[in-house]
Design a protein around this nucleic acid. Structure first.
Lengths: 245, 245
DNA sequence: CCCGGACCTTGACGTGGATCAAACCCTTGC
DNA sequence: GCAAGGGTTTGATCCACGTCAAGGTCCGGG
């Protein structure tokens, strides 16, 4: 079980200087949106830019939680395992998302990159000190946590009560909405994760995910494009299918 | 769809005076734990004690979220519905739990009492003003939200990947742990909610919940006592069953 | 260009839990 | 005491999705 491994990270010092927070493309989406120029400078002092290949484990469930991250590009998945290997992915993180917050001293889940990913890396202690100093940041973090909580409740409804088809449609719509909130085009949706990852996120198997995709394709609700893109052909029907209406 | 209905609340003025926050039995568990005497006094000024019968709807999904609550006794369930009536209970709240936080201006779920319940009632605006003034309270609220987020991820693992038997065992253990954290005896666990509520919390049907209970009873892992109490007879096996080990 | 391996799709079949349908409690009210 | 109505249990049957097993497709490396 590989824990955090700086060896695989490209040396980031130069990049840290060249791309300070002021020029950060995802600033408006994340904690940093709350900060003034001077505060940003303080934040930049304790941060490191890091880059990882796909399928790199950032940290594992149970590791001591002394590093926090902010995704700046790429996709990260969070998951929990049962002793026999069954896996539940609890979230996919996109640019602007924050990870590593933990209640006790250890991470409650494993974090692994899905695609090549760049992140800001913060020592937990230093972030906590900064939070004391900048209540605006504290407040912003709280509001992000509230959003995540609401999303978690939606996901519980999905996992507990939706059918396979409803799950897949909800998932595609979620990706679409998240893309548009980040200023990307929302219709051909980019779906960077594997069928297996989608299955473990939705509480299904790869086979069922695959079958459901072809079923949606056959009924002309979606069509599969080059480069893991999915075109939503009939948005109205998609919205209905996602809620079982 | 009955929204908040003060008519059914016992007039609480006297009680508010007689049981101010200083004497609150759940204070150590909730937001208020972070506050000093003077701050508590300020909080007490904006709070009302209210009491409701069982099966009373505090608010519905989509209502304007201008009231927050803190449970002081009893049990409350939170749920979301699909258009066709399928229901997912996203949480059961016990004394000390907080509810009503919302991202937009509306509640993301319906809240309904399971048993007769007493709560502290806060106008949202006034709480928000107080939060600005008391960063300790802000911080405490954030740490409570982080805890809830971790619990939500456990619940996703349960809903997406556990079998019926594992779900029921996990649920009973959760109730047991929460009781003990509140200083109640953890072994004969009090299970105040109906089979239908348990089913909607675990993503099952009442029939399956009932069958699983009898199955656990037959294999002498639990036994059902008077007054909706469940005795865990074999705690080790229970712990194994909950994780599929 | 061809090979190997990872991922995806498709098919045949099995099953855990849902559905449908009674009975069987308990209360509570008359 | 008895009837009515909600919750719970139990049984018989069904089916959505899982499991098992091939193929198919794509891609990177020799």
């Amino acid at each position: 079980m590989p824990s955090f491994d700086l060896g695989r990270a490209r040396e980031p010092a130069a990049q840290t200087e060249m791309n300070p927070c002021g020029a950060c493309p995802v600033r408006s989406l994340t904690v940093c949106a709350a900060l003034e120029a001077e505060e940003l400078r303080r934040l930049a002092e304790i941060l490191q830019n890091v880059r990882f290949d796909a399928s790199h484990t950032l940290f594992s469930e149970g590791d001591t939680a002394d590093i926090l991250y902010n995704v700046t590009s790429g996709t990260v998945k969070l998951y929990k395992l049962l002793p026999d290997g069954r896996r539940q992915i609890t979230g996919f993180l996109l640019p602007g998302d924050f990870l590593g917050l933990s209640v006790n001293e250890t991470y409650a889940y494993t974090a692994e990159t899905v695609t090549p990913t760049t992140l800001c890396r913060f020592p937990r202690k230093k972030i906590e000190a900064l939070l004391e100093e900048f209540p605006k940041m504290q407040k912003r973090l709280f509001s992000m946590a509230s959003n995540e909580l609401a999303a978690a409740q939606d996901q519980m409804l999905l996992l507990g009560r939706k059918t396979a088809k409803e799950k897949i449609c909800s998932f595609l719509l979620l990706l679409s909405q998240r893309a548009s909130r980040r200023g990307h085009k929302e219709n051909p949706v980019h779906v960077p994760m594997s069928r297996a990852d989608i299955a473990d996120y939705l509480g299904l198997t790869t086979e069922t995910v695959s079958r459901t995709f072809t079923q949606l394709k056959t009924s002309r609700v979606i069509s599969l494009l080059e480069g893991s893109k999915v075109q939503i052909m009939d948005m109205d029907q998609m919205l209905d299918l996602a809620e079982g209406a």
